[in-house]
Nucleic acid binder design. Structure first.
Length: 421
DNA sequence: TCTGGGGTCCTAGGACCC
DNA sequence: TCTGGGGTCCTAGGACCC
């Protein structure tokens, strides 16, 4: 084995994972207290939930007391009420979440510029270059304390030498804690845990491992690597490595352009009228292409998704003859896809559209042929976009949209970005 | 008043080419 | 005439994350 020793290369990486405790609920609590509320919803059985009248009644976040009743994220509000009849339900507010996420990010920037915003409430920090005269653990405690005192909510901080272990560490006991998970601690702290606790090991895989008599992360770590590869392919290798605490991935602190952009909506009532579906598809397409153009990107693939009344998902996609961000062109393709897959009369619960295989606008190869027509269409998009930019997304409304009030959930706003930056 | 929405990545099978 | 096999691209569907 050859070991390359280049200056600095032999240093182990110093990684922190910062995870907001019950983010949506905590941020709501802080906001309520700021507005003079007498109760702290972190201290009572409470959840952040969707809207049941819009058929999106699920639990998005829960308080520790709610958790004690056995309520879990993703289950229906109906189920939550069965478990805890007195449960308090508060609505989602993505604008508030994004503000708080940004506050956290700003504070963390004082410690390192190598921050990966993994989700709205999670960050990885590469501290390798910023520990002069201090330890990683000290920094973790400092961050934990400062977030609490300056921002009013609590975070767990995971301390380790790679991202996977830092993330696993931050998931240990909660809330408001700092945990380490160094190599020598893997056997005692991580191996006794059930496989379900391992990152990237989901509900479909757990029973398969169980059938192989693998119940803990330790048992997975000691399973023959080749066997796992044979059984699960690439995922098998990754899971074996994770179970053994191996992860060489870098903190992705540079802004990355999206690989795909999509919007979907669960309809307030099932729809079996193709004309109506087309209208909704147009609204979704306008939202998606608007976002696409804001990134200065072009799409090569258009995808349409349908979910029937009985929760059967179907999707169709097609590669475009050339990359574009043009609303009219993309909608025309989406409409074809919808017609190809829609069986007349089927009640539809959800419709979605997305664009994939994105490229930067300036990457596009210039066509040898004239593109006058496209240029004209792009101009129209440009004008519409600048109005939307100035006066809000709905300053320009397609006529068709007006008749959708009873069907479309909250068509008054562009769906908030899930991931910041 | 039962089951969200936004992503990334992988796999399997078919078409097509050499 | 008796039908291999590798590579690439495309599409549908699914697993998993927050």
């Amino acid at each position: 084995m050859i070991i390359y020793i280049i200056s600095g290369d032999i240093m182990e990486r110093q990684i922190l994972h910062v995870d907001v405790n019950n983010a949506f609920l905590s941020w709501t609590a802080v906001e309520m207290l700021r507005k003079g509320s007498k109760i702290d919803i972190r201290e009572i059985p409470a959840v952040i939930g969707g809207d049941e009248t819009k058929r999106s009644g699920i639990v998005l976040a829960k308080s520790p007391k709610a958790k004690m009743f056995g309520i879990s994220t993703g289950e229906t509000l109906y189920q939550a009420r069965m478990k805890c009849p007195g449960i308090r339900v508060y609505p989602v507010n993505f604008k508030l979440y994004k503000e708080n996420s940004n506050k956290l990010y700003k504070l963390l920037l004082q410690y390192t510029d190598k921050i990966e915003r993994f989700s709205i409430d999670e960050c990885f920090l590469d501290m390798s270059d910023y520990l002069i005269g201090d330890t990683l653990l000290n920094k973790a405690y400092e961050i934990n304390k400062r977030v609490k005192s300056e921002l009013g909510f609590t975070v767990n901080v995971g301390v380790a030498h790679n991202k996977l272990l830092a993330k696993m560490a931050s998931d240990f006991t909660k809330p408001d804690r700092v945990h380490t998970l160094f190599e020598e601690e893997i056997k005692t702290k991580m191996w006794p845990l059930p496989t379900s606790e391992l990152f990237m090991l989901g509900r479909k895989t757990i029973p398969k491992l169980y059938n192989m008599r693998i119940k803990t992360i330790g048992q997975l770590a000691q399973t023959d690597k080749e066997l796992l590869v044979k059984k699960f392919g690439k995922h098998g290798l990754m899971r074996w490595e994770y179970a053994n605490g191996i992860d060489n991935s870098e903190v992705q602190y540079k802004f990355e352009k999206p690989k795909g952009i999509g919007n979907s909506t669960t309809l307030a009532v099932d729809v079996n009228d193709i004309t109506k579906l087309e209208e909704i598809l147009l609204v979704l397409t306008e939202q998606v292409t608007y976002r696409l153009r804001k990134y200065n990107m072009l799409a090569n693939v258009v995808n349409v998704q349908l979910r029937t009344k009985d929760f059967k998902d179907k999707s169709h996609q097609r590669k475009l003859s050339e990359a574009t961000s043009n609303t009219k062109f993309i909608y025309a393709e989406a409409k074809v896809l919808l017609h190809e897959m829609y069986k007349i009369g089927t009640p539809i619960r959800l419709i979605g559209m997305r664009v994939d295989n994105l490229i930067e606008k300036n990457e596009k190869q210039l066509s040898l042929f004239g593109e006058q027509d496209n240029e004209k269409q792009d101009k129209i998009d440009e004008v519409v976009d600048s109005l939307k930019q100035k006066y809000g997304f709905n300053s320009i409304t397609r006529a068709g949209k007006l008749s959708l009030g009873t069907v479309l959930n909250d068509n008054s706003k562009v769906v908030t970005e899930n991931r910041p930056q």
